[in-house]
Design a protein around this nucleic acid. Structure first.
Lengths: 193, 193
DNA sequence: TTTGGTCATTAACTTATGTAAAGGAATCAA
DNA sequence: TTGATTCCTTTACATAAGTTAATGACCAAA
């Protein structure tokens, strides 16, 4: 149950057995079905999700259209970070794209953990730094690369997702329309990938 | 000298007088002229800069073209974060756009501070969280808005920069060419802003 | 003053993407 | 089987942005 969570934590800080126990106890196990909304943009995100299995996506609502900001895979922490960190409603929604097994950490429990195990500050600092670097990577791909280049890279690193989720979600994640994604795919196939 | 730095820190953690002293002593004062390269992409960024005065810009090098990733204003911490945090060369360069007064914190001094004043972990965690949220905001503007919309917002919040730095730098920050920036400006002026 | 460089603007042309609409494949339930 | 729904693809058209190149303004160095 907590195995993958612990191996993530171990990359950053080492906890004693009793600290591990306390850390575990701060989480709640929760299963959610496919297409379940975990956070709506009108709400304050007060939970952090560690994904044991399944896929989540973060999306913006633009005139009724759901535009994917990020796709969270297994063994990652996920939430609407802006809302969670600022304690105010943001403009992001969080939804499951598959049946999911989650480990849920309430924000007040996290605050307790900061008090009781100060090392958790280091853990969260390092996770925040990692997320920041990740956000910069994605941003730089929007700045430096064409939609076609972004598609190619995405396809290289996430070929499994083409089978797991609808293509129009991938299209919006790449910053293009489904029509354009279809054209890019056709173009690449005709030129022999 | 340290006034603005302390008021930034105070937003996140409170330090005792002796801690403040120790914190100050970790920094080195440095002046750099306009167009000075602080970090080159081939190097590891091992310094963190608090900007007392002046402007810095972070840019990518794309086939010899300098594409602006971010413009750092006075009273912000700045560096090539990816390189600084990962301890490896990245793909970002950091350069001054005006004469600058900087407070420089070497990475090993920061590591020392983590040891000697554990609260600094909280400080850096919160700064990293803030930077992360900021990166997400910029990313969402690339995802959700057209170049013209991005220009409008930028002009609203940064009208002073049009006088302080060349327009082609602003253009690259907005993800467009100088030609396109010029067209957008003309379009907006002709339609009565 | 002259020269050279940087920079913003403008024009002409090309092209990739967006929009709107339609068709077809796959899935699922009645 | 039928009908509804979702989703991917394709077509036709419009358009904003890229590319290239030319011009003129400004400024600093010789």
């Amino acid at each position: 149950m907590f195995q993958k969570l612990h191996s993530l934590v171990e990359q950053f800080v080492s906890l004693t057995d009793s600290e591990k126990k306390e850390f575990e106890n701060a989480f709640i196990y929760r299963e959610v079905p496919r297409n379940f909304t975990l956070v709506h943009e009108s709400e304050i995100a007060d939970e952090l999700y560690f994904i044991n299995s399944g896929l989540l996506r973060l999306y913006y609502n633009k005139d009724g259209e759901h535009i994917t900001a990020y796709i969270f895979r297994e063994h990652l922490f996920s939430t609407c970070f802006q809302s969670f960190l600022e304690g105010a409603p943001g403009n992001q929604n969080l939804e499951s794209m598959e049946d999911c097994e989650l480990l849920v950490l309430k924000k007040d429990k996290l605050e307790e953990l900061y008090e009781r195990i100060p090392k958790i500050n280091i853990l969260v600092r390092k996770i925040a730094e990692q997320r920041f670097i990740n956000a910069q990577r994605i941003l730089s791909s929007f700045i430096l690369e064409s939609p076609e280049q972004r598609y190619k890279k995405f396809a290289q690193h996430n070929s499994d997702l083409f089978l797991r989720i609808p293509h129009h979600i991938i299209a919006s994640y790449l910053g293009i329309t489904p029509v354009s994604l279809s054209r890019i795919r056709k173009r690449l196939i005709e030129s022999g990938n």
